[in-house]
Design a protein around this nucleic acid. Structure first.
Ligand SMILES: NC(=O)c1ccc[n+]([C@@H]2O[C@H](COP(=O)([O-])OP(=O)(O)OC[C@H]3O[C@@H](n4cnc5c(N)ncnc54)[C@H](O)[C@@H]3O)[C@@H](O)[C@H]2O)c1
Ligand SMILES: NC(=O)c1ccc[n+]([C@@H]2O[C@H](COP(=O)([O-])OP(=O)(O)OC[C@H]3O[C@@H](n4cnc5c(N)ncnc54)[C@H](O)[C@@H]3O)[C@@H](O)[C@H]2O)c1
Lengths: 206, 206
DNA sequence: AAATTATTGTTAAATAGATCACAATCATGC
DNA sequence: GCATGATTGTGATCTATTTAACAATAATTT
């Protein structure tokens, strides 16, 4: 079980490493990764220590190997199936964005209540009626949901999602959701993040 | 100077408090706020202690007062001026979303390089040519930028933003940005957050 | 091939953040 | 108006996370 912050940073490192690989870099030093991520070389080495990877001494980390090792930690073998619930403006933008990436996170269904959307393919993914949630979640073994329904229906839809067996939720709505302990919830609120930026700008701290 | 996590939570509390106010609630207990935010009553009290607010004992916190006190901490007097750089799909969605909220964060300009957008009003906000960045940032006293340009131009645009005098950046692109120490940077990456959810779902931890 | 240098991996120390424990407070019921 | 019980505010403690320090290592220079 890795520290939450380490998990976040590993994901960020991988993103950078993939880019480095494209640029033809085969090795990278801890201080290089650190500089690209606003943290320190020690922090990078510590994070990498957690996942038990050891580098070529004095040549830095092998980029390709490190990507693989991070993958073994973060990704599930078969990948992880994800559903988008509420395929409006934000839902579509997010879906398009994810479908464009080749990753182990597969958005394989979207759900809505709007009859003009149901049974259509939107942003490359099929949209189902919310009433079929449980059925589809079970048959496709979906374990994570992205919540992009209007605030007014967020709480109600959440209960249905939890009932359907979803084990992780990324919540884009402004409503704090209530979920049982065995469901991991990530509140993903732009306003909170922007207000944090505002606060630290105001206080003159980096 | 408040702990980073406390700043985040205060923003979240305020969101909830505003909703409670609408529902006609005048007072709220620490354990009620905690239940809505997946944390503990002690944590809530500690956070509120940081900002020096004291409640009506035994009646809970006065919702309206607490909103105001959080506002004094998080908001600047005159509010804070924000620019959106790159007004494509995501930029428009985000701008529409923020403009809808009444808050002290004012999106007062957007920037793009696409001539079909420049000098138009998009999502309720005027779009300027990127070449006028410095001029507009200075005259409107903009201090925070939301980065929603394509990954390919992110680094280059960032230097321009920093030169223009921006002191805080919220980065939606997949490229880790490099900024000087006196500029606060928030990497706001959906993939990182979703991978974190995936990891904790996989490890079976809430 | 010995000395120098840059870099890692890891133990130990420091800092930041969360929780415990409990005295102080005060609305409410008696 | 006194006892009761719920709730707060906070010092002390505990846990998580970051940073410092440095020996070990191996490429590079001499
Ligand atoms: N637009 C943004 O940039 C942005 C940013 C942050 C958060 N948000 C939040 O994300 C949510 C969605 O925003 P949006 O701009 O996409 O709104 P939207 O109205 O465009 O989309 C909402 C979608 O949800 C569907 N829907 C409604 N009730 C439903 C239900 N019970 N079950 C399933 N689907 C249902 C609607 O048919 C619609 O397709 C909102 O809560 C909003 O506050 C939006
Ligand atoms: N769509 C999403 O849900 C999503 C999610 C996460 C991150 N992102 C990231 O956000 C960024 C934007 O995504 P999008 O879907 O809105 O793309 P988009 O192509 O729709 O929008 C990009 C906009 O930036 C403008 N632009 C290009 N070069 C510019 C420059 N040098 N200066 C100013 N403006 C410039 C373009 O004219 C366009 O209007 C991308 O980096 C993407 O990876 C998108």
């Amino acid at each position: 079980m890795l520290p939450e912050r380490t998990v976040e940073r590993l994901s960020e490192y991988r993103r950078t490493l993939l880019q480095s690989l494209e640029e033809g870099k085969t090795h990278i030093f801890s201080h290089e990764l650190a500089a690209l991520h606003h943290n320190t070389a020690v922090q990078v080495r510590r994070d990498i220590m957690f996942i038990g990877y050891t580098s070529m001494q004095r040549k830095g980390y092998d980029v390709r190997d490190l990507i693989d090792v991070i993958g073994e930690i973060l990704d599930s073998e078969k990948g992880l199936n994800v559903a988008v619930v509420g395929i409006g403006n934000l839902g579509r933008a997010v879906t398009t964005y994810f479908v464009g990436k080749r990753s182990k996170l597969n958005i394989i269904a979207t759900f809505d209540v709007d009859h003009t959307k149901i049974e259509r393919v939107i942003s490359g993914v099929k949209c189902y009626s919310l009433s079929r949630l449980k059925e589809i979640v079970e048959s496709y073994e979906i374990s994570v949901a992205i919540m992009t329904v209007p605030a007014t229906s967020a709480s109600e839809v959440t209960s249905q999602i939890v009932d359907a067996g979803i084990k992780g939720i990324m919540n884009f709505t402004t409503v704090p959701l209530i979920v049982p302990d065995d469901c991991y919830l990530e509140e993903y609120d732009m306003i909170t993040s922007l207000e944090k930026v505002a606060y630290f700008v105001k206080s003159g701290q980096s």
